[in-house]
Amino acid sequence: MKLYTTKLAPNPRRVAWFVAEKGIDDLETVEVNLLAGEHKQPEFRNKFGLGHLPALELDDGTCFTETVAIARYLETVYPEPNLMGVDPKETAIIEMWTRRAELYLANPMMMFVRMTHPALSALEAPVPEVGAYNKAAAEKFMKALNRHLADNEYLAGRFSMADIVGVCGVDFGRLVKYRPPEEYEHLNRWLAACNARPAASAGLK
């Protein structure tokens, strides 16, 4: 299998972290230069349909993108340690929190950074107003997460794909020197605990 990826971007980091948590060591990694537009070249688009990273190419030639889809496949092939649910109920809970973390936290944070970081203008034109709107949306959900994490160590009860998605989204804000509000003490405790895991550095180096 080949994993097409790039350093520092939040979506590729999700899969890199997931792979590291599982100790998967037989994936061939192919670095793709986003700023040079390598993901927009016909060869890449023809292979994967869209210029999205990360992307996984199986040995039989099957190709797909989307981080949760890639994680779901790898979870099936490498079932331990489990990161996506051991039974129907836990799987549903982790899926719920993964979607919440993606839709209400990671996606707004990514748009906030993309719309305000001048270096990313190579990918799209900055729109500060859109960035500010998404920052406010992300912080609104952070407030709700802070309440949830007052009574929960991790988003879905134990460390899972949901935490990886959420933390990678928040951490992307570092590109614009963003830190969550200090009063969200439970959220910041959760971020620190997740980033202290040895696998958390995957995709950052």
Rank of each mutant, 00 (worst) to 15 (best):
R174M: 12
R174F: 12
M161P: 01
V167R: 04
R179P: 00
P180A: 10
P180M: 05
V170H: 06
A156H: 02
G173M: 05
S160P: 08
D171E: 13
M161V: 14
G169C: 04
V167P: 02
V170E: 05
K177E: 14
D171W: 03
E182P: 05
A162K: 03
R158H: 13
C168Y: 10
A162H: 06
I164N: 04
N152Q: 06
L175R: 12
E183Q: 15
Y154W: 13
D163C: 09
C168A: 14
Y178G: 02
F159S: 00
D171T: 13
F172Q: 02
N152V: 00
M161S: 11
E182R: 15
M161F: 15
V167D: 01
P180V: 09
F172T: 11
L175E: 11
S160H: 06
G166S: 06
E153W: 00
Y154C: 05
F159M: 04
E182G: 03
S160A: 10
L175W: 14
L175H: 13
L155V: 07
M161T: 12
F172V: 13
R174V: 15
R174T: 15
A156L: 10
I164D: 02
G169W: 07
P181N: 11
E182T: 14
L155P: 01
C168G: 08
E153K: 09
S160G: 09
A162N: 10
Y154S: 05
E183W: 11
V176Q: 08
Y178S: 03
D163H: 05
E153Q: 08
M161W: 14
E182W: 11
F172I: 12
K177G: 01
G173P: 02
D163V: 04
I164R: 02
G157P: 04
E153L: 08
L155A: 07
